[in-house]
Design a protein around this nucleic acid. Structure first.
Length: 152
DNA sequence: GCCAACGTTGGC
DNA sequence: GCCAACGTTGGC
């Protein structure tokens, strides 16, 4: 069992959207960063647990928990010229971008704000709180995962 | 292969 | 809206 954190802007796709998706499941499309892609394509496994993080919003922070239900497969939105995430360098014969499917598990009892995560010495090594971090998909250690749940 | 210019992310 | 940090692009 592995743990992850995935960022999304709630204006684009928030925890509410995931909960309201068919079967409470959605594909995590639109990631256009190679490090994040590699994790989705090569490392994320069915059953892995995911912190759902809201970015670019009044109180950025962790809002809920999701689960990986389908492992990496090509992100078809890259093939669609009408899609805002279209990338002409990706084609179905040789896809450049990948995504996973995640299913809503639950909302946290409260938002755990970035501000609080940053101030917590137990989380000093977490990718999220390190300077200049821009990864939208990142690994979380089991110790970090457990600790964050105690903050809930 | 270097690196300046540019675009994006995302907190504040 | 600002801007620091960082990734990508493309000329050379």
């Amino acid at each position: 069992m592995q743990y992850w954190l995935m960022k999304s802007e709630p204006d684009e796709f928030g925890i509410d959207d995931l909960e309201q998706s068919p079967d409470r499941t959605a594909h995590w499309d639109g990631v256009r960063n190679y490090q994040a892609r590699n994790m989705m394509r090569d490392q994320m496994r069915k059953g892995d647990q995911v912190f759902f993080y809201h970015s670019n919003t009044a109180v950025p922070g962790i809002v809920g928990i999701a689960e990986v239900v389908r492992e990496g497969y090509p992100d078809h939105t890259a093939f669609d010229p009408e899609d805002p995430h279209h990338d002409p360098r990706s084609d179905p014969g040789n896809p450049r971008w990948f995504m996973v499917d995640v299913r809503f598990r639950r909302r946290l009892d409260r938002i755990i704000p970035l501000r609080e995560l940053k101030a917590d010495p137990a989380l000093a090594d977490m990718h999220l709180v390190r300077r200049g971090n821009r990864l939208s998909v990142m690994p979380v250690t089991e110790a970090q995962w457990r600790h964050i749940l105690t903050l809930e």
